[in-house]
Amino acid sequence: MTIFIFGAGFSGQAFGRLMAARGKTVHGTTRTQEKADALRAIGLVPHVFDGTAVAPELASALEETTHLVISIGPGDEGDPVLDALGDRIATLPKLEWIGYLSTVGVYGDHDGAWIDEEAECRPVSQRSSQRLAAEMAWQDLADMAGKPLAILRLSGIYGPGRNTFVNLERGTAKRLIKPGQVFNRIHVEDIARALDFLGERRIGGVFNVTDDLPAPPQDVVEYAASLMKVDLPPAIDFETATISPMARSFYGECKRVSNAKLKQAGFAFAHSDYKTALSSMWAQGNWH
């Protein structure tokens, strides 16, 4: 097995570390040489990829790739990996499986209702519309190549270094209150494990990779603060809060996302909800 990860950022690195620890050859892209050195330090073979230029070493690595993971988001001009390498990827001689990291944002707003992978996709934001278009483009490529494509729709990602404990420590945690608002979340370790699970079995299809407990965002802040034994940040009414347009746009969608399909396939989550995950990180001291 040779793995190639386009976009070895937070989620891509978690998967790369997991597979490199098992002795697999893992290639990963980043945009700068400084970040390439960081990838090498965790056991990945780094490649600098700016979304356009394709170095000979990158092209050569793709020829040996059996498992391809895409963790680079599309932009206004489309999907950079497809644009630069789509024709080449469609004819890779050893390719067995493709994993595409997407977002539950493609579903849009469902007024707090429970939804699964069969729910209508009605994205609200431009970035979610671009994600849905990229999903379809990757499905077209996979169909043309005759390879299974797993689309992993991820909810709010957290893990070591990126979590409510860190925000509380930095003083950046906000307790925004919007009645009825809930979000799902997913620990980055479970993203890595889901990629491993689906890739090892060459399973294709759309899967929600999300936790069991959609909850109001302030509940997460309150639970983390109780573990840290620190004061809560003040409650802020969402309607009058000063937050970025992007942050405000997240609150324009409310849904409860089911992970039953992935569980039915045989996957077991290591972090089934934010309470067990935060408790574990706090107890182990690995939240930084």
Rank of each mutant, 00 (worst) to 15 (best):
V45R: 14
G105Q: 05
A55S: 15
D83M: 13
L101G: 01
L44M: 15
G75S: 11
V81L: 07
H47E: 06
L39V: 14
L39A: 14
A55Q: 12
G51K: 12
E63T: 12
L85P: 11
G73R: 06
A59P: 00
W97V: 07
S71Q: 04
I89W: 01
W97Y: 01
T52Q: 10
L68C: 06
P46R: 04
V104W: 00
T65E: 02
T66D: 09
A59N: 12
G108T: 12
I70T: 06
A84F: 03
Y107R: 04
V69I: 15
F49I: 08
E77K: 15
E63L: 10
V81H: 07
T91S: 13
G73T: 14
A90I: 05
G78P: 08
G108M: 10
G51R: 06
W97C: 01
I89N: 02
G86V: 05
L95T: 00
V54N: 09
D79H: 06
A90V: 09
L68G: 03
E57H: 08
G78H: 10
S71H: 09
A41W: 12
A61N: 07
E63F: 00
L62S: 03
I42Q: 15
G99Q: 01
L82F: 03
G78F: 10
I70Y: 02
L95F: 01
G73D: 02
G78V: 09
Y107H: 11
D76F: 00
V69A: 08
D76P: 13
V104M: 07
G99V: 03
H47P: 06
S71Y: 07
Y107E: 09
G43M: 13
W97A: 01
Y100K: 04
E96Y: 00
A90C: 04
P80T: 06
A41Y: 13
R88C: 01
T65P: 03
A59C: 02
V45Y: 08
G73A: 15
P93I: 00
I98F: 05
I42P: 08
L44Q: 11
V48W: 09
L101R: 00
P80D: 10
I72V: 14
T66K: 09
D83K: 10
G105W: 02
I89Y: 05
V104D: 03
L39N: 15
G99E: 03
V45M: 14
P80C: 06
V106R: 05
P56F: 12
T103F: 04
P56M: 12
P74H: 14
L58F: 12
H67P: 00
A61T: 05
Y107S: 01
G105V: 12
H47K: 11
L95Y: 01
A61M: 08
A55T: 13
E77D: 15
T66F: 01
T91G: 01
G43W: 13
T91W: 00
V81Y: 05
A90P: 01
E63Y: 00
H47Y: 08
A55Y: 08
L101F: 09
G78I: 11
A53T: 13
V106H: 04
L62A: 05
